[in-house]
């Protein structure tokens, strides 16, 4: 197993390097710069600013100096928020984003697998069609539509929950978590339905039934292990996606998370902030994909032993 993990971590280095390089040059090739705002800056000041942030140097020099800082763990200073470093801003925004993402992940996993498994047990009946068509709606409805809709219904008409904020009023975390989770819940439901349908038609399920086991034991003990492997494999990328894709929900619900910095940075041409968040998210995506893969291997006894055999 150790060898497998090490191998995958080494593979991540070139991937990250490609992401860094592509973002670095793409951002700089976009028209405008961090200091070309609507209010024109005097040429002398602009020159001084560029010198300070080394923007007057050749692009390649900037690139290698950025790589050097990055290797030391320094994402650089923010261009638009003088005096604050990108590291500080990520550190400030991450807790809210991570908390929101974790709630959304838990909701989507629990709701999604339950719906998917229930649907798979009686395929092509109402028990299948109702959760699955609801899931389809969940996939189709974008969060910028679902969010305001839920605010309207549950916040303003029914007055059940607060409609914005984060951690100020009890219950203000419910709507954003649900909104963010909806698309993923639907996808998990479809994945687990497919996985369970496949597994429940296997010969060993017939064996379990022939042993006279109660149906719920057949489903939970013999079915779930194999049926949910696709969901486990999806959980990692899903969490990374929830973290990096939460900016719409953060904006709608006024949450001080990382996603908002990300979008603002893109509009502001805040080079270091764009780079910093992209690299950070890329690393997260790679890490969670890896965790997912390890879990999927560990769940399958055959693969588990093979990878153990390789390292030992």
């Amino acid at each position: 197993m150790g060898k497998f993990v090490l191998h995958r971590l080494l593979q991540a280095i070139p991937v990250l390097l490609v992401v860094i390089t592509a973002t670095f040059f793409l951002v700089r090739s976009a028209p405008g710069g961090p200091f070309s705002a609507e209010k024109a800056v005097p040429p002398a000041v602009l020159k001084a600013l560029e010198a300070r942030y080394q923007l007057d140097q050749p692009v390649l020099n900037q690139y290698f100096s950025y790589l050097g800082d990055l290797a030391a763990g320094d994402l650089g200073p923010s261009f638009r928020f003088p005096g604050r470093s990108v590291n500080e801003m990520i550190y400030a925004g991450l807790p809210a984003t991570a908390e929101l993402g974790l709630y959304a992940l838990l909701i989507s996993m629990l709701l999604g697998t339950t719906a998917g498994v229930i649907a798979a047990l009686k395929p092509n009946t109402a028990q299948d069609y109702i959760p699955m068509s609801t899931a389809m709606i969940g996939i189709c409805l974008p969060s910028f539509l679902l969010g305001p809709l839920m605010m309207l219904v549950f916040g303003i008409w029914l007055e059940w929950v607060p409609i914005s904020g984060w951690g100020n009023i009890p219950g203000d975390k419910i709507l954003p978590a649900l909104t963010l989770a909806s698309g993923y819940t639907a996808y998990v439901a479809r994945l687990s339905r497919g996985g369970m349908l496949e597994v429940m038609s296997q010969d060993y399920i017939r064996t379990a039934r022939a042993k006279g086991l109660p149906e719920w034991i057949v489903v939970i003990k013999h079915g779930l292990r194999g049926g949910l492997i696709p969901v486990v494999a999806f959980a990692g990328p899903a969490f990374a996606g929830l973290l990096s894709g939460s900016f719409v929900v953060e904006t709608i619900f006024q949450i001080p998370g990382l996603g908002r910095f990300y979008v603002q940075a893109a509009f502001n041409r805040d080079y270091t902030m764009i780079m910093g968040t992209t690299v950070f998210f890329a690393a997260l995506i790679i890490l969670f994909n890896l965790l997912s893969d390890i879990l999927a291997v560990w769940l399958n006894p055959k693969l588990r032993q093979q990878t153990n055999g390789d390292s030992g």
Binding site: Y204, R206, T207, A210, K211, G212, L213, G226, N300
Partner: peptide, 30 residues
């Protein structure tokens, strides 16, 4: 009756045994 009074052996023992559970666990279930 199933597994208790009438038991079954299937054709392909590879696919008829659950790959995710130990054979001991499957054996003792009945």
């Amino acid at each position: 009756v199933r597994g208790s009074k009438i038991a079954t052996i299937f054709q392909d023992p590879m696919t008829s045994l659950n790959p995710y559970l130990t054979i001991g666990e499957q054996l003792i279930e009945p």
